[in-house]
Design a binder for these strands. Structure first.
Lengths: 268, 268
DNA sequence: AACCTTGTTCGACAATACTGAATATGGTAT
DNA sequence: ATACCATATTCAGTATTGTCGAACAAGGTT
């Protein structure tokens, strides 16, 4: 989220941009798209789209589904994603800290940062049974409906918050999601006073969570930790208790605030 | 690895291809590159490279490192990698099976497939106390020096094996790595007779592993499972025992052979 | 201070990406 | 079976636009 897009002399290569936009069409909700859909979505002729698609396919960024004539994201995205984790230098510090909190609480703990006004998931630690299982690394969610997101927003400038609202809106994911800007501002004020953010089934029904921001030396949020559990275990009482544990972990991670993507991208 | 590249009427978009090659420069060994290095590597003028780099940077595929003038892979790669995992439909079947074997053996278990003549890591399950919770999804290694790779090669056509050797060579990763084609062919014959593949410190010193191929209805390898442990625990005796457990798991996964990337890419 | 390496700007050129119409393909309904 | 529709694919002309080299700027090193 570059607030003021300083008009540098950027020579954007159009065809590359279109190729990227094609990849961006593919979303977990609709992981399979055909040529016509892509062409319509980007508002470019089918023949142009086909050239780009075939280029992306030849390099493994798209995979043509055998049976039909649809495409899906290819293995190359996963490979580059893996390589890019090398740059997530916060992880070696965060993981042991997260695992300790996870074990003490028994709940799922998430580490996130914010990118382009959205929550970006960096790491999670699950209860003992499913050890590594599914990763969340790379998942993106809106900020207004998650514990991590609200925790971060509460320590970012009002103009930043407003920008997030302007760009992404306040979409209702569940009946509990905050969709009114004024209410969100109030919620952020309450969050600051309480010392941690709560997510009361605002992103997933049946799931509550607590989140605390990780802040840099200027006090700006660069990341967040959250604990997530069912409405049964995540009572108000437990929330308070968990928030204390989280708070300590956040303080430790604050010492490495400069390693968070949000810092590296001049977003704060 | 398309054996016969059927010369279809593919209209590759050059600038997109170059942009992809730029991303491909970034390798865990050298995760930070500057303009000159990239320009030299692709043998294109610096000004051209800069245009492409700036385009990639503007979309989050590259991140300009704050301090210096180098770039690294950006968050967008991780995001797309996450989205692409939606297409790894084998995982829901594989994970519970893997975790069971993991617990029975106490060793690390890996699930892989083969892409472009290389081992592609899909999933791993660690012992209960994960020292390293990093994901391996997206990692790529040569086939000739890993248990999974050799297991798969032993159930792929000789012409496929030869093609892998021609394209990738037999690079020595450790002193134990097989670097002679004839010796590799012998090893694959032994592997078939033994019923499973062994990796005797051929990829990492101090680590031995056993691997078994997952085969489709034609008998061709589409993936593999491996158990990996230190030379102390992974004795010949244990290897035999572990191989039995792995074998059962592989049989179960064979029923979903069509879900493996290697199947989806017409590589077998 | 001279030199080297690297990053950045810019305008002209032609390569090449784009386009739309025509054709092919495959599935569905009549 | 046939007609029809939606989608995928081909192709060649056009001008858009990506490319390139030279010139300039900025650091860093000897």
């Amino acid at each position: 989220m570059n607030h003021k897009r300083t008009e540098k002399n950027e020579n954007i290569v159009g065809s590359v941009l279109k190729a990227i936009q094609i990849l961006d069409c593919f979303h977990p909700d609709n992981p399979n798209l055909n040529l016509s859909q892509i062409s319509k979505h980007l508002e470019i002729p089918k023949s142009t789209a086909l050239n780009l698609i075939q280029t992306l396919e030849s390099e493994g960024f798209l995979l043509r589904v055998k049976s039909g004539n649809t495409y899906q994201l290819g293995y190359k995205n996963i490979e580059l994603g893996y390589r890019a984790t090398t740059s997530l230098s916060i992880l070696p510090y965060a993981i042991p800290i997260m695992e300790e909190v996870q074990e003490k609480t028994g709940e799922i703990i998430y580490l996130t940062t914010h990118i382009n006004g959205q929550v970006f998931y960096l790491q999670c630690s699950y209860p003992s049974r499913p050890k590594v299982s599914y990763s969340v690394r790379g998942k993106m969610l809106p900020m207004h409906c998650t514990g991590c997101g609200k925790a971060m927003l509460s320590y970012l400038s009002q103009e930043f918050v407003q920008h997030v609202i302007d760009v992404h809106g306040l979409r209702a994911i569940t009946p509990n999601t905050i969709i009114d800007p004024d209410q969100l501002y109030k919620e952020l004020e309450i969050t600051r006073q309480r010392g941690y953010a709560r997510d009361n089934e605002e992103e997933t029904l049946g799931v509550r969570c607590v989140g605390i921001a990780i802040r840099n030396t200027n006090g700006q949020a660069v990341g967040a930790l959250s604990l997530s559990g069912s409405v049964l275990t995540m009572t108000d009482e437990n929330a308070d208790k968990f928030a204390n544990l989280l708070s300590n972990a956040c303080n430790l991670l604050s010492q490495h605030a400069n390693l968070f993507p949000a810092s590296l991208m001049d977003q704060v």
